[in-house]
Design a protein around this nucleic acid. Structure first.
Length: 504
RNA sequence: GGCGCCGUGGCCAAGUGGCUAAGGCAGCGGAUUGCAAAUCCGCCAUCGCCGGUUCGAAUCCGGCCGGCGCCUCCA
């Protein structure tokens, strides 16, 4: 299979071959855990997940690593004196407020002033969301999810090497900076040049913040600061590491000096990933840190940039609990909504898109269920040579063209496949990438609804049947209307009335 | 000002020089239904604009217009 991806490094499509096939090393920049993750974060994480699942489906052994940024970086990290507010401090402030009002399960945190507890809380929340949405790496917590605070020594070792090799310098106040002028390729990823960075940025580089640095683009490696909430001892004074160093340190620690794939949101291209390259290559002397850099475009909400002030800011929890739609959303629906458009185009998150996605998820789940029934659960053995599955993979091999891939599946569904065990096998294969839990079409829904509501629904169905038998259609319609309002989909057949929870 | 991405029907979106421009959702007409839902059948676009290359362009080139991102913490 010819796989090609758009590499930000070259701004062009490049054929993909791992350095040490069949192994693939992949690193994704993960979340900063001082708040709940929002759907935009997950658009980027799920794109990485899609990439990873695709590579596995075509036979590669993927080691996918993701970091958790739990160091309390400053809200204005770039500013030389470490200005702004500590992110952990601002999280603590928010948590205390919501704790007072009892509006949040933040009540679970004993002491919001303990930054480690705050980080722990939001990390758990992130992992929970990630598992709910089928982010594979989140199920590999111990092997592949790494916390920055657990790797301070590795970061310090890297900083020491950078100082030794002349890529870093220490100011009189002890702050350690990376010297971008010591690294000729700085700017290659983002297309910036040092001159442009110096003069550019619309004149927003403020002179006084830059005073101690040799070049305005020099970035922080270590900041001695006794007053910082999270601090560690170091040869350069007690303080905290710069934001960029954790990814360089952890990636090389577990994946080696040169990795195959590195992903993140488009906003990370500069400065974050540019700085990672400078640090890693500065230490290893290699020409590449990651051979392929893939970046996901931003997510918009109803045509606008998502922001708290516009009121269109949604966390994963918000959407699943119906804040965006007024009705609970099944995780598979949100997952599909976030992966269904090409990662390199801006995606527009809309209520309508969500219900479109629900229709697709539903269609596939019902088809799978019927094939399962017809085949008695016996799936035929198929591989990449299967026309449908092969075509699906082939579409994805072209820079993850999921629209084309799904187009093929929809056409296939419409053709009413006759070989049930073969069709079931295709569904199972698809599910390894789509992650819809196709083979448990109703289970998770009913479990979630266990208790009063499910019983109520059942009795309403019974009422409909009884009323219809008595030709009391007004009562039957009323009962059905009630079920619909409860979020159920009702169907009446010769066998009687049944209902199930709608996906959206 | 610098560096990039994008512009196909109401919405999402495939298509990268040549059959009647995939597919999904919505909509419309019909079958089915007590009425519905689901399902099935049918209908629904000349590709942002202008110019060029070519026998032939949504697809290549140039210009313009428009949207978006980064250049500052941000997926």
């Amino acid at each position: 299979m010819n796989i090609q991806f758009y590499n930000t490094l070259s701004n062009s499509m490049e054929p993909f071959e791992p350095l040490n096939a069949p192994k693939v090393t992949m690193y994704s920049c993960g979340p900063t855990v001082y708040d709940y993750a929002h759907i935009g974060n997950f658009r980027s994480f799920l794109f990485a997940d899609l990439l990873r699942r695709f590579l596995e489906a075509v036979g590669y052994e993927v080691r996918h690593v993701m970091n958790i940024t739990d160091v309390g970086h400053m809200t204005e990290d770039q500013v030389a004196d470490g200005g702004g507010e500590d992110k952990m401090a601002s999280a603590a402030r928010r948590l205390k407020e919501s704790k007072k009002q009892g509006t949040d399960h933040a009540t679970a945190i004993e002491n919001p002033d303990d930054p480690f507890q705050v980080a722990e809380f939001y990390m758990d929340a992130f992992l929970e969301d990630a598992r709910t949405l089928g982010l594979k790496v989140a199920f590999e917590e111990s092997e592949n999810i790494f916390r920055a605070t657990d790797h301070i020594p590795a970061m310090q070792a890297m900083i020491t090497k950078l100082l030794e090799r002349g890529h870093a310098y220490q100011c009189v106040d002890g702050t350690v900076y990376y010297s971008v002028e010591s690294f000729p390729s700085y700017g290659k990823l983002s297309g910036n040049t040092l001159d442009q960075i110096r003069s550019g940025a619309g004149g927003r580089v403020e002179a006084e913040d830059q005073a101690s640095k040799r070049h305005p683009a020099d970035f922080l490696l270590w900041k001695p600061d006794e007053s910082h909430l999270m601090k560690w001892d170091s040869p350069w004074g007690t303080g905290y590491p710069g934001w960029h160093i954790e990814c360089s340190a952890m990636a090389s620690l577990v994946l080696g000096d040169v990795i195959d794939l590195h992903t993140g949101g488009e906003d990370l291209i500069f400065p974050h990933h540019e700085c990672e390259i400078a640090q890693s290559c500065g230490v290893t002397g290699e020409s590449h840190f990651a051979r392929f850099w893939l970046h996901a475009r931003f997510l918009m909400v109803e045509g606008e940039k998502m922001s708290k002030s516009k009121g269109n800011f949604f966390t994963v929890r918000d959407v699943l609990q119906g804040k965006a739609t007024g009705r609970d959303v099944h995780p598979a629906v949100l997952r599909y909504e976030l992966i269904k458009s090409h990662y390199r185009a801006n995606m527009n998150f809309t209520k309508k898109g969500l219900s479109d996605s629900a229709a697709v998820v539903r269609k596939l789940r019902e088809f799978t269920a019927s094939m399962q029934q017809k085949s008695g659960g016996e799936a035929a053995p198929i591989d990449q040579t299967h026309p449908i599955w092969g075509e699906f993979l082939n579409a994805l091999s072209d820079d993850l063209n999921i629209s084309k891939a799904m187009g093929g599946i929809m056409t296939w569904l419409a053709s009413s496949p006759t070989d049930a065990s073969e069709a079931l096998a295709v569904c199972q294969k698809l599910d390894t990438i789509l992650g819809f839990s196709l083979e448990e079409p109703t289970q998770p829904l009913e479990e979630a609804e266990a208790g009063g509501e499910a019983e109520q629904a059942e009795s309403l169905c019974k009422q409909i049947d009884e009323a219809r038998q008595a030709k009391d259609y007004a009562s039957a319609d009323a009962a059905r209307q009630k079920l619909i309002e409860l979020g159920y989909e009702v169907s009446t057949t010769k066998e009687g009335t049944s209902c199930k929870k709608q996906l959206v």
